[in-house]
Design a protein around this nucleic acid. Structure first.
Length: 276
DNA sequence: CATATGTCCTGAGAGC
DNA sequence: TGCTCTCAGGACATAT
C-alpha cells in the first residue's frame, strides 16, 4: 500500500449508527483525496497511514474493527472504504481497496494534520510501544503505582499495545500474580514481565493474532489467526494448568475486565519449577 | 440475561 | 481543606 494514492474515499451504505470519523466525513474525504500513502506504521493498537503532506490517518479498531484489503466478512458492517491506485510511469496502473469493517462500531478513524498529531499520539496520550519499551522504562513508569499490575499494564498511556487477553498470558508466562500491586514487584519480576511482554506479543504476531470463539478477528486478508490455540490461561477457567499440572486456572474480574491465572504458578510461593 | 479482544468520562472514597 | 490516586460504573453498539 505504500506508494499508492487515495483515489476515492467513501462511506458504504451501512444502516447501523456511524462510527466516529474526524473530521466529519465530507472534510475527511477532501483531505484524503489524491494524497499518496508514503508509509504505514503502528503505535500500540493504533494503525497509521502516513500521507505525503505529513498528515496521518489514525485507525483505532478497538474491540471488533478490522482493516481489510479485500473480502469483508459482511457488507452490513463495512464502515469506510478507501480506493487506492498506483500509477507507474508510462505503464499500467493498479487499483485496490482498503476497507474498515467493524461489527460493534466502537472503532474510530481520524485524520490529523502534521501539527495535531501529538494531540492523539503524543506522550500524554500514548506510552511507548510494548515492543520497544525497555525494562527500566517499564519499571519507572509503573513502580510508584499502587494499581494491580494486570490493570496497570492495560493503561495505554503507560505502555501502548497490551490488550486484555495478552495481559493474562504475559503474567502467566512471567509467573506473576495479576493482583500484585506495582509498588511491591521485585526487580527480577519486572525483568520477567518485560521479557514475557516481548515473547507473548511477538509469538502472537507470528501466529497472526487470536481469533476467539466469536470469530471476529481476521488479518488483512480476512484469514483467521492461530494464536488462540497457544493460549495458556485466557478463557481457560477450570482447566488444569499446563505448567504445574496441579492447580486449575482461575477467572477473576479486575477493573471490570476478566483475568485468568494459575493460583499455584503465579503466587509468591512459586519460585521453584518456573522454567518447566 | 450475561458476556465480549477497548477507550473515555464522571464521581466516590482513601490517603497524605 | 485540598490534592492525588484508584477504581466502580456507565456509555458507546452489536452479536451470541
Amino acid at each position: 500500500m505504500i506508494g499508492y494514492r487515495i483515489a476515492d474515499c467513501s462511506l458504504p451504505p451501512c444502516k447501523l449508527r456511524p462510527i466516529l470519523i474526524s473530521p466529519k466525513f465530507s472534510l475527511l474525504r477532501k483531505r484524503l483525496l489524491n494524497q499518496q500513502i508514503v508509509d504505514i506504521g503502528r503505535r500500540g493498537k493504533r494503525l497509521l497511514l502516513h500521507l505525503f503532506d505529513e498528515s496521518v490517518v489514525v485507525i483505532e479498531p478497538r474491540m471488533t474493527g478490522l482493516l481489510l484489503l479485500e473480502d469483508p466478512p459482511g457488507p452490513e458492517h463495512l464502515r469506510l472504504c478507501l480506493d487506492l491506485i498506483t500509477e507507474n510511469e508510462g505503464s499500467s496502473s493498479h487499483a485496490r481497496q482498503l476497507l474498515f469493517w467493524d461489527r460493534r462500531g466502537l472503532g474510530t478513524v481520524r485524520w490529523l494534520s502534521k501539527d495535531h498529531i501529538d494531540q492523539v499520539l503524543g506522550p500524554e496520550k500514548l506510552g511507548p510501544d510494548a515492543l520497544v519499551i525497555t525494562v527500566a522504562e517499564l519499571k519507572s513508569r509503573l513502580k510508584p503505582s499502587r494499581r494491580a499490575i494486570k490493570v496497570a499494564m492495560l493503561d495505554q498511556k503507560v505502555v501502548a499495545g497490551i490488550g486484555n487477553l495478552y495481559a493474562s498470558e504475559i503474567l502467566f508466562l512471567a509467573g506473576v500474580d495479576p493482583r500484585t500491586s506495582c509498588d511491591r514487584l521485585s526487580g527480577p519480576q519486572w525483568q520477567s514481565i518485560h521479557e514475557a511482554i516481548g515473547t507473548v506479543l511477538r509469538l502472537a504476531i507470528l501466529h497472526e493474532g487470536s481469533t476467539l470463539s466469536d470469530g471476529t478477528y481476521r488479518n488483512a486478508l480476512n484469514q483467521a489467526g492461530n494464536y488462540q490455540n497457544h493460549h495458556r490461561v485466557y478463557d481457560s477457567a477450570g482447566t488444569v494448568c499446563t505448567r504445574c499440572h496441579g492447580a486449575e486456572i482461575e477467572r477473576i474480574v479486575q477493573a471490570q475486565r476478566c483475568t485468568f491465572f494459575c493460583p499455584r504458578c503465579q503466587t509468591k510461593r512459586r519460585t521453584k519449577n518456573l522454567t518447566q
